[in-house]
Design a binder for these strands. Sequence first.
DNA 1: GATGAATGAGTATTCATTCAT
DNA 2: AATGAATGAATACTCATTCAT
Lengths: 216, 216, 216, 216
Amino acid sequence: MSDYFRTLALGQNKRARTRNLLIDTAIDVFSDKGIEAASVQEITMIAGLANGTFYNHFKDKEELAGSVSRAIVLEIAKRLAEQMQGLDRGVTRVTVASWAFLRIAVANGNWARVLAYQFQRRPVTNTIVFQYMRADLELAAKQSKLDIEVDDFLLEQLASLMMAALHRQLEQGEQSAVMHRVCESMLRLLGLTPAQAKREVDNAQQHPLVSRVVSD
Amino acid sequence: MSDYFRTLALGQNKRARTRNLLIDTAIDVFSDKGIEAASVQEITMIAGLANGTFYNHFKDKEELAGSVSRAIVLEIAKRLAEQMQGLDRGVTRVTVASWAFLRIAVANGNWARVLAYQFQRRPVTNTIVFQYMRADLELAAKQSKLDIEVDDFLLEQLASLMMAALHRQLEQGEQSAVMHRVCESMLRLLGLTPAQAKREVDNAQQHPLVSRVVSD
Amino acid sequence: MSDYFRTLALGQNKRARTRNLLIDTAIDVFSDKGIEAASVQEITMIAGLANGTFYNHFKDKEELAGSVSRAIVLEIAKRLAEQMQGLDRGVTRVTVASWAFLRIAVANGNWARVLAYQFQRRPVTNTIVFQYMRADLELAAKQSKLDIEVDDFLLEQLASLMMAALHRQLEQGEQSAVMHRVCESMLRLLGLTPAQAKREVDNAQQHPLVSRVVSD
Amino acid sequence: MSDYFRTLALGQNKRARTRNLLIDTAIDVFSDKGIEAASVQEITMIAGLANGTFYNHFKDKEELAGSVSRAIVLEIAKRLAEQMQGLDRGVTRVTVASWAFLRIAVANGNWARVLAYQFQRRPVTNTIVFQYMRADLELAAKQSKLDIEVDDFLLEQLASLMMAALHRQLEQGEQSAVMHRVCESMLRLLGLTPAQAKREVDNAQQHPLVSRVVSD
DNA sequence: GATGAATGAGTATTCATTCAT
DNA sequence: AATGAATGAATACTCATTCAT
């Protein structure tokens, strides 16, 4: 059973610990049977809490689902932000961030599943990660004179490609080939030629965020 | 209220007529509140039928959802097949078919919504339309020496782009700009340069399946 | 699938043939899942008839259940009557009849099951077989000066012993040991000593109705 | 309305009290219309509880039926055990226990009905009462050199005789004659002569468990 | 803050029965 | 006689939510 967020809250007060226990449990249950099919009762039971405790922390399942995805995305964003500080080339940033995002999500199988479920329900493009992505895209567009319009629809298209990659890997296990390919697709979509796209992705693969992940 | 499939069944026996009435009603209800949230009771009530009648025609809601999407996709495929007989250029076929598919789905607002809901639940790439798409892609790859691998994952990526376009138009109404753009994206993803992609889509827009639709 | 009663009705009119088809089918379904759990719809479907046809022949499931058990019991009684004409010793008649009844019922596995189910629902002691049984008991009581009172309660006790034997054999297959034992129990209940009871049953086992059955 | 088990739970926590309220109510409803025909809704309504409360205590009606019969049988067994401590003669124990069991069940009219219904559904011979019975039978067989084989089938035969007596008294009211007679039958079945059986039952009738019951 | 028993609306599903064809 | 589509009452079961302790 996941204990990621519970562990993060170890030093905090009881309220925070119980809340994160619920989030950890929800990640497991959501990823197991989907968000719709999961019931509050099952989550609290598995968490070893009483039924009513849930409502001391969340208004309803919807709020929980939002908190869960936000917590996951925030956690991934935090790791990305730390390591991408040096990069100042937009295209590289986009490529490395996409690949690393997928990698981290899939490495935590349950995170990927929950994000995939949540993406079906509400667009993810307004999450923090995609706000960073938008900045990187604008940087890349300016630097590389890309033939694109950086707007919501572009982000949605890129996001849906990433989700297609998540789905595929949830069925077939983590595969760097899938990530390589979807990153190429994203760059092609941004206007790079197949050859350029391939070269960019090959380079990105060298970045610690990506390569280290591959090896561990 | 939709009456598309009911109308198709006008000449047939009562069983077929009731069945298609249920399908028409389900399209409305599904598109209104989603497939999960829709209840059998609501569908039968709106259809003006008794609760139990549903189960004379479908095992459960899942079977209905499958029948509904299949009926819609088949209907779209039928229209496409008729009009695309003359086209023998792979890239053109892919472009026209994608645009026309989107156009027909969105023109029947409820069809698009149901397909979008169903796509979240099961991959649509094994439906008839995507079997045609695969053939066209193989043709295009050979004729135009595209740098792609025609496999399931390619289809899934293309499908997810189309669904992104559907979603967008469901929120903001039918827009040829959105379709133009997503078709360009698809072609870029197949390896065409932005300029080539734009030219292809501009040409496709002249095809009756696309332009006529725009006008009706 | 059973076709016993259908075959009996081969020469008769269509009404009789359909009716007996329903009876045959009901025997199968009743014996498979019990009378309560069986549904009219399942019976007609398996019979290859339309739903509504049932009600041309029976008022409801209860009437069918009655007809089915009556048909079975009558059929068994007919076979017994033919072969027991020569016997004029009451105790022998009771023993042979009981054993033969059990044997025939169990040999038609489905008959035994249906009788067992029906016995739970209504006392069987007013069926024709038990009317014969009563006569034989009275004969035996007079001839052998048995210390019994031949009344409904005696018949019910004997019937419940026979049903216990049926149940046992339905679980474990036909076993002459079970029949031998339950017949001894019945005779003990009628006041015979264990030794007498054993002797009577040993003799009864020679009777064609019993021994022939054992061999076929 | 029964309140036997509710009363037993008076000192316990609310959960136990509600549970026993459901058991008491179920005894009434089961005995009124049978276990199959009873509905969960009716039971909760009569108990004055909400529909869903049922499922906080029992998985389904089947589990309730099991709990109800177990509670009844356990209660009867408890009373028997207390009062039969002095008896060390197997045949007497069997006779007294059988008679007392029947008497207690019938005195609580609804208990007898529920047991009769449940017996039709699952063999009762593996309940606690019949485990005691088996021990007593083995004792009796050794002490009195009975010509019997103490196994499941013997218990089933004896149980079915007892149920025949229950049925009879449910229709016609409690009658010591019926009990006297079925106890004689049981002893005959164990190999006693009619005269011995009668004497044993006459003696057993003097035992407090039996005679006191008769008087209260 | 946590508990957990109780609630009751909501949903799926079955099935005997009717009746027009 | 048979058909079979339609009915709708009946029932089981789930689950978000409340609230007294």
